[in-house]
């Protein structure tokens, strides 16, 4: 029970190194499993795998199919095919889109920045506003402002993302004309870098808010509950018995403790957020991976779909890493924290 505090500093360095090593191992494992999964999926798809890879809309001719069979070694045993596939994934070769006639990695890299901008903005927006609003609600539990926030978050939580996006377009673009409805930037106009930034930002508002809304609702409710729970813990009584003011108790003792479960959940929700980006990008014609997904679905372009699947999973792992780092920053007990 008694852990000597001396030497904790040295242990900490080792712990961090081990954590990074653990993450790297997990990362590679997840990538390999997902790649295997994708492989199995294509195998399970009805029809000729070569035809599947080429896209089912019938654009492929015999010569191309032969090329695909050769490239993927489709005439070799399944296990060899899997080996080749995994090796390609590990060397960052995601294959070739026969429909778009470009390497998948090129297609994805082209679209990745827009998706990163969208998901990153939405994630931070949801997390920070959720924590802020949840704290307000938790501290005013039972008052009308708390009830109002609760009702709003309940409604947001029940909204389909695509519909919320469309309704915002209807209100803010069509009716009020405040914000652009579609795209990433105004096309065909030359502007300075600052003006361009503002332009992108104004295009970003509606998609980011639509994507963030549901998570904002989740984090608000979670933070509210967490604040209420922490406020009833013993060490808050200690703080009151010390003679601290209410504001000092909130900032010094309640907030940090209350944020922890929200950060944990935010990490777990990262995959849902990334999935939501697909829908939001479709609604707003945001030229990111989600939009690419939609196009790939429409054309049944499997190499692209599989590549996106892999890259999006990696994005989730990265977001997990970020939330984990935040958690470690707040909580000194990292080494003793259970994984769930």
């Amino acid at each position: 029970m008694t852990t000597s505090a001396s030497g904790a500093q040295g242990h900490r360095g080792i712990a961090v190194a081990l954590a990074i090593l653990g993450w790297a191992a997990k990362f590679i494992a997840v990538v390999l499993v997902i790649a295997t999964f994708a492989f199995v999926l294509v195998k399970a798809a009805p029809g000729d795998p070569a035809q599947v890879m080429a896209g089912q809309t019938g654009a492929a001719d015999e010569r191309m199919l032969a090329q695909i069979r050769q490239e993927y070694g489709l005439d070799k045993p399944v296990i060899v095919q899997l080996g080749t596939h995994l090796k390609r994934v590990l060397t960052l070769d995601l294959g070739f889109s026969y429909r778009q006639r470009q390497p998948v990695s090129t297609l994805i890299l082209e679209r990745l920045p827009a998706t990163l901008l969208l998901t990153g903005t939405a994630f931070l927006l949801a997390l920070f506003s959720g924590i802020l609003l949840g704290t307000l609600a938790g501290l005013r539990a039972g008052k009308w402002s708390d009830t109002l926030l609760t009702v709003i978050s309940l409604i947001l939580y029940a909204m389909p993302v695509f519909w919320l996006g469309l309704m915002m377009v209807l209100l803010f673009s069509v009716q009020l004309g405040w914000l652009p409805a579609f795209g990433y930037q105004t096309i065909g106009v030359t502007m300075g870098p600052f003006a361009r930034m503002l332009d992108v930002a104004s295009h970003l508002v509606l998609p980011a808010v639509s994507l963030a809304a549901i998570y904002l609702a989740i984090y608000t409710r979670l933070m509210r509950a967490s604040v209420i729970e922490v406020a009833h813990q013993d060490f808050i009584k200690t703080a009151r018995a010390k003679g601290l003011t209410q504001s000092r108790i909130i900032t010094g003792h309640i907030l940090r403790n209350a944020i922890l479960p929200v950060v944990t959940i935010a990490g777990m929700q990262a995959s849902a957020l990334v999935g939501g980006a697909v829908v939001v990008e479709t609604v707003f014609a945001w030229p990111g991976l989600g939009r690419l997904t939609y196009e790939a679905v429409m054309q049944r372009d499997y190499p692209v779909l599989l590549g996106i699947f892999l890259v999006m999973s990696v994005l989730v792992i990265v977001l997990n890493l970020v939330t984990d780092a935040i958690y470690r920053l707040i909580d000194p007990r990292v080494t003793t924290r259970a994984t769930n």
């Binding site: 013993d234 060490f235 009584k237 200690t238 018995a241 010094g252 403790n257 909580d331 007990r333």
Partner: peptide, 11 residues
Amino acid sequence: FQEPMSALNPL
């Protein structure tokens, strides 16, 4: 207080 385990802010 009674519970020294929970009477201090863990963070």
